[in-house]
Amino acid sequence: MNDKQQSWMIYGATGYSGKLIVERAVKAGLAPVLAGRSEQKVKALAEQHGLDYRVFDIHALAKSDALISNIALVLNCAGPFSQTAEVMMQACLKQQAHYLDITGEIAVFEMAASLNQAAKERGVVLCPGVGFDVIPTDCVAARLKAMMPDATHLALGFDSRSGFSPGTAKTSVEALPQGGKVRKGGQIVTVPLAAKTRKIDFGAGEKLAMTIPWGDVSTAYHNTGIPNIEVYIPASPGMVKQLKRMNWFKPLLGLGLVQNFLKKRVDKKVRGPDQATREKLTTHVWGEVTNAAGERQTYRIQVANGYEVTADGSLLVAQALMGKHAGASGYHTPSTLMGAGLVEQLPGTVLSP
């Protein structure tokens, strides 16, 4: 292998998820190049683990993609990914480096899918969403498609008490003014926040659940081709009412002053769960398909805490792309790249009986 084939980068390495992934990589005997915009933070983390590092703001890549020269793969951990993914993807295409990230943002997945042909021509993989929740739900979707090939409707969901990291919280703030999202007839459409509710047994008893604009509205379609897709999470009646009220002043939530205020509150109050919390909280993942005849199939799995899934899953996919899957190209979801059994390779996964 040449130097480029051996070198890979974690951008956003000093964030909550980035640090977890760096720790797992070092423990596995790997030596990623660490990168981010804060020299003080990146240098300190690199020196702590004895790793090389680079310091640059993501937008500098638009002027000089050489900032990722001699890198075979970039794992982007810098959210919100609406602000980082496209620039990094374009730089990876120019430098012929595989691109991974840990987003759950619909727009990022759709943008990556639009670059499928360009990625094939450059011989690189674009695979955003190699963490939670996309790895588990993507694999559940693939299993359900195999169970019911003629499915016309897919519902996915997860019951997680993982808590938010700062990056995830800021992404949620950005998503509020955009409303809900579902897929109907193959197209992503905007619906009100908490547009639909239903009772769902995710794996630990029946709970009230509501629709959310999660990444699977995009990824599960590219994975399965099922034209109608919804994603659910548990929600209290009070939360549902609160979100429904927010539909009335949704445009105000997109104003710069409001967004800045909410994101500053995130910076002050959100830290992400500690190790003890992560270790004791597991996640139930559920999926359901129906066909035109009204037949129904369900599938459930249990996985580790969402941040554990992200750390283990992103590292597993990165290693595969630098190994047995190095010759792959084009846009992929986690399961189209690695197979529906990907989630079963992650520590803490328990299949339904």
Rank of each mutant, 00 (worst) to 15 (best):
Q83F: 01
G225T: 14
Q5T: 12
R37A: 01
Y53I: 05
T168W: 11
Q5S: 14
L51N: 04
D101K: 00
I21H: 03
K94V: 10
M88S: 00
E279Y: 08
G50L: 11
V240Q: 02
R278V: 15
W286A: 04
S314H: 05
K280T: 15
T336A: 13
T282F: 09
D274H: 10
R296H: 12
F261N: 13
Y307G: 11
Y299K: 10
P80V: 02
V231R: 04
E295C: 09
F164E: 14
N228F: 03
N247Q: 06
E39H: 11
K241T: 13
F261C: 14
M111W: 03
Q297W: 06
G180Q: 09
Q90N: 11
Q242H: 12
R245G: 04
K207M: 07
K19T: 15
Q259Y: 11
Q275Y: 10
D216S: 11
R296K: 15
I226M: 09
A13Y: 03
V108C: 02
F56W: 04
L45R: 01
I68W: 02
V191H: 09
E110L: 00
M239G: 08
N305I: 13
A119T: 08
A141G: 14
G272T: 05
F249P: 14
L100Y: 00
L51H: 04
N223K: 15
Q178W: 12
A46Y: 02
A292N: 06
M9T: 08
T310M: 02
A44D: 08
A85K: 00
A155R: 10
P347A: 13
G186Q: 04
K269Q: 15
I58M: 00
A46D: 06
K199I: 12
P237Q: 05
Q40S: 12
I226W: 05
P128L: 07
A72Y: 09
A112I: 03
D150W: 04
M246Y: 09
R54Y: 00
S64V: 09
H59D: 00
A220P: 13
R245A: 07
M9A: 10
V125W: 00
S165Y: 05
P166T: 09
Q95T: 07
I229R: 00
V108I: 06
G157M: 15
L281S: 05
G12M: 01
L34H: 01
P166Y: 09
